[in-house]
């Protein structure tokens, strides 16, 4: 993927670019907000990572500017700690996701992968699949090997988030945000408990395990072992 990073803190910028390059991505890094607008408009990036606080032009204004210039590249905001309002403001400005500094690189990578442009999904995709597991979004049913599996609403949502990111890691924090709308870090094993309940229903009765634990990061649904 071709990724643009707009971040004035050189240490953070090089930490992110090095990490992404190690993952095989091409990375351009820019320090100034105004240069960021120019660069983002000139090239077609797969993902743009933007710091909220930038010299020249702040991150929100940058994203508003490139959105009104017709740039559709997905944007991941880097926000400061404790910013209870940053997420909403970022999404309203046209961002796709946000991550609070300081963060683990694996978290950033998972979020970059999750928002990255991929071969456009057909708008009317109503069946999500992983191996022999099928989720029908219209009928709200889940089948594995033609067995109908009964899931509660939140379990359905949890499985849906995993399936929409099939083959990619979904972190614990991403699950908390997307499944339960928890924008804070609970002290208890909420995610682990619900994943284990879901596994009991969709994995345990079958010989092939679909939900994989990615140590220290999160979970991935995949038919590859």
């Amino acid at each position: 993927m071709h990724i643009l990073i707009v971040e004035d803190d050189t240490e953070t910028a090089s930490y992110i670019s090095e990490g992404l390059r190690r993952e095989g991505h091409t990375v351009d890094a820019i320090e100034d907000g105004r240069d960021g607008v120019v660069q983002a408009s000139a090239m077609s990036y797969d993902v743009i990572v933007v710091d909220r606080m930038l010299p020249g032009l702040d991150g929100l204004a940058l994203v508003k500017a490139i959105r009104s210039a017709g740039v559709r590249s997905p944007v991941l905001f880097l926000t400061a700690l404790g910013g209870v309002d940053d997420r909403v403001a970022g999404l309203e400005a046209g961002g796709d996701d946000y991550i609070a500094k300081p963060f683990a690189f694996s978290e950033l990578l998972a979020r970059v992968n999750a928002i990255a442009r991929r071969p456009p999904l057909r708008e009317k995709e109503t069946i999500l699949k992983a191996g022999d597991l099928e989720m029908d979004l219209i009928a709200r049913t889940v089948r594995r090997r033609h067995d109908l599996i009964d899931l509660q609403a939140r379990e359905f949502r949890l499985l849906e988030v995993l399936l929409r990111n099939r083959g990619r890691v979904v972190t614990r924090t991403m699950l908390l945000e997307r499944v339960w709308d928890f924008h804070f870090d609970p002290k208890t094993t909420v995610v682990e408990t619900h994943i284990s309940r879901l596994r009991a229903k969709i994995d345990r009765p079958y010989d092939v395990e679909l939900i994989h634990t990615v140590r220290g990061t999160g979970y991935r649904i995949d038919d590859a072992r």
């Binding site: 700690l81 404790g82 609070a100």
Partner: peptide, 26 residues
């Protein structure tokens, strides 16, 4: 340990932001 420190700072900042009342607009 660093996550622990970050968590404390995050909580303190959150409390002061909430006390500032800006969220009431939403």
């Amino acid at each position: 340990e660093i996550d622990r420190v970050v968590e404390i700072i995050d909580a303190v900042l959150r409390i002061s932001q909430i006390q500032a009342g800006a969220r009431r607009n939403r």
